[in-house]
Design a protein around this nucleic acid. Sequence first.
DNA 1: GATGAAAATGTAATCGATTACATTTCGGAA
DNA 2: TTCCGAAATGTAATCGATTACATTTTCATC
Lengths: 329, 329
Amino acid sequence: MANIQQVAKQAGVSVATVSRVLNGKDKVSTKTKLKVEEAIQYLNYEPSMLGRNLRNSESRIVLILIPSISNPFYFEVIKGIENMALSQNYSILLCETDSKPEKEEIYFDLVRKKMADGIISMDPAVNVETLKELAENYAIIQCSEYGGGIGIPYVTIDSEEASYHAVKHLIQIGHRKIALMNSDEKFLYARERRMGYERALQEHGIPLDGEYIFYTQELGFEQGQQTMKKILQLQDRPTAVFAVSDLLAIGALKEINAAGLHVPEDVAVVGFDKIDFSNMTNPALTTVAQPMYKMGTVAARMLIEKIQGKTVDSIVLGHELVIRESTTG
Amino acid sequence: MANIQQVAKQAGVSVATVSRVLNGKDKVSTKTKLKVEEAIQYLNYEPSMLGRNLRNSESRIVLILIPSISNPFYFEVIKGIENMALSQNYSILLCETDSKPEKEEIYFDLVRKKMADGIISMDPAVNVETLKELAENYAIIQCSEYGGGIGIPYVTIDSEEASYHAVKHLIQIGHRKIALMNSDEKFLYARERRMGYERALQEHGIPLDGEYIFYTQELGFEQGQQTMKKILQLQDRPTAVFAVSDLLAIGALKEINAAGLHVPEDVAVVGFDKIDFSNMTNPALTTVAQPMYKMGTVAARMLIEKIQGKTVDSIVLGHELVIRESTTG
DNA sequence: GATGAAAATGTAATCGATTACATTTCGGAA
DNA sequence: TTCCGAAATGTAATCGATTACATTTTCATC
């Protein structure tokens, strides 16, 4: 493997000149440039990023923190981040935390040790204290999930409004007994989504019934099934369910089917996220779509600006209700 | 941000000593060690991997090449790779190629430029020529998908046998008209799976019917739907379908439902991969399970050994047929 | 042909670690 | 106390690039 010295010798010029040809910033005469390019060709030379990165004190790698790689919600976001990052010559390291602090620490360390230039966190369970501390010295952006008021720039949607929108849809097609399948309210978005739910009910004069609100520890398929089982056992069975994730909603769907009931005739279901699978189910799922790809590109842009030392502001993006078979037959 | 020089000065020792404390290999007296540790604490020092990596000529990063991040098949494999890699202090860069050569090149370049120490390729559409060339100078392992006989170590399952196993199951529960939903036979595994399908039929004296074999360009949900539509239009409709991916099978499921037919009474369905979603469907999918996590750990181990300069042999792992509702009601 | 400013190129320091080799320190034996 | 080998520590080269600054070349102008 050749290095820049050998290329310089081969071309009969100095390393500085080779570097200049490589980076194309400074002026080099066409004749020398040709000589250097020939030497590069001849020696099959590839500049080492190890040397370059050390000199430039950067790694050109950014971290994406997600709780679980298998949650389809993140795909589009990641794609958005990746495309933006690649266009700026950054690579992305996908970090699955399993919501475990030990795992998180491994990746935080990568930043501390200069192996990564910044972090986009999408983990709602992230240790906010550590993150805050880290944010003092390193570039950090929160995407989609964010702890409020800790001074780290974020990009997200208006969860309260989105939730309100979904529940209002259910009310408008005639439902009055609407269950909420929420996640643990230690998460800000969970609190916001409950508030949207309540606002929609209030606005239409539907009394709030605590019996209709359920909390789950995680947002997966199994939790959806279990919770739906409980819901179906209620004395006064709801005619609609709003679940704060598609996976929960899909679990609910399966459980309703298993009980011999039909969606949406017996129970209507609304999910959240518009993951790919949400229209592969039977029936296809009505769901709230976040602008995931956009969220990713915006987050990446913000992060790169932060890395470059600029100050960046938080951004709230819009959402969209995608109405499909699980509410309208 | 402090560097090793400053720590040395603070502790009143040389950089060599600090480095020795850091790496714990060479002997350092307890007294000096304490002094150094204090200095590290005091200055909040974190060793830079940029410096270390340059000196050691390594990046401690490995690439995973997958065609699409949203294909759930890869999750468990990736988890296996990641856990093994982390335990050896490697980080993984997840690279989505979209099966596009341009995208592929970006990541290959990362290896050429020393930003990555090796590659685990799971992309069946990878450019074999480039890969072969790369393998001469860099550590490369093929995982799950592999081009045969190109001299790059691989870990995989016996596709022919697995396919045979699945089709035999359908025959044993009484089916004789079995369609095969295969992917393009430019892929080795597609050819192998067709061979397994044929062997099972032959062995049970069922004549081969070319009408029952379908090819799809991709392995997604939509292709499954489209192909199933064609299958349902056949004069002599098959009573069972073996799809070479779960996503295809799930698409088939949806289409069968949409046609007002029932699984498995009217048409039985078998998938391949045992992705998470395969038991969230209605009915749950019978499928062939690959030992994905194991595959990941094995691939990672092989790659790391390769990086260390050892020679490694290819490995073929076993599979398992998971029988669920889509064949047995 | 002499002059001088602009353009091209070269020299050497630098980024932050590791490590071969050199030197100093230490403790026990004579 | 002296001496010696082992243990501890230090010195300086090295990995492979970038770049500030110094030097040389080029070339239009007089």
